[in-house]
């Protein structure tokens, strides 16, 4: 029996972009469990949308955009839940996101705490550029904005990270 093209494309996507998607989600969310949930949700959305994928964007770009959106949704969900459960306790609201799963408990953990405090678009640009070393052009395609906007987001993110990390960086 000939392989189903949808299944083949999906398996290829999972194999080629899946690890990067997981790494991005880990950095975007700072939590292994949430990252896995976001990536699984992204795969589900991608599987449903695959028949309609017209190939106008690179499949990797298209899928990473889905991952970023799922991370944003996941993060929003948990922030709301935290707020609900803590009854607006500022100590809980301002607590840094957990960064379990990071191999280096030192600088990487402090960087992750800083990343977690960045606004969504700055965090996205920073994670994709500094974490995954994607080109500015690809980041602009993922974020659907001009390269200059990506640069501006990166600069603001770096400035905030430097403030967060102090003299270390």
């Amino acid at each position: 029996m000939a392989p189903n093209p949808r299944e083949t494309a999906f398996e290829d996507l999972a194999r080629e972009v899946g690890p990067m998607a997981l790494a991005i989600a880990r950095r975007m969310l700072g939590n292994e469990e949430h990252a896995r949930d976001a990536v699984q949700e992204a795969f589900l959305n991608a599987y449903r949308a695959l028949p309609g994928f017209r190939g106008e964007a690179q499949m990797r770009t298209w899928f990473i955009r889905i991952v970023i959106n799922c991370c944003r949704r996941q993060r929003g969900l948990w922030m709301k839940l935290n707020r609900l459960l803590s009854y607006g306790d500022p100590a809980v609201e301002n607590a840094p996101a957990p960064y379990a799963g990071l191999p280096d408990p030192g600088l990487a953990a402090r960087i992750q705490a800083g990343v977690d405090r960045l606004p969504h678009r700055q965090r996205t640009a920073f994670v994709l550029r500094y974490g995954e070393e994607l080109s500015l052009e690809e980041i602009s395609a993922i974020m659907e904005c001009p390269v200059q906007t990506v640069k501006s987001n990166l600069f603001k993110a770096v400035e905030k990270m430097r403030l967060h990390l102090g003299p270390e960086v």
Binding site: F10, E11, L13, A14, R15, G18, P19, M20, A21, L22, A23, R27, R36, V39, Q40, E41, F43, L44, Y47, L102, P103, D104, L107, A108, I111, V127, Y130, G131, V158, M161, R162, L165, V169
Partner: peptide, 22 residues
């Protein structure tokens, strides 16, 4: 900062498992 962000990419096994579960 860039060096602090760099980490090893996870293997494809977990990503494949998540994709198949989805």
């Amino acid at each position: 900062l860039s060096a602090g962000m760099r980490r090893e990419l996870p293997g494809p096994a977990l990503a494949l498992a998540l994709a198949r579960a989805a």
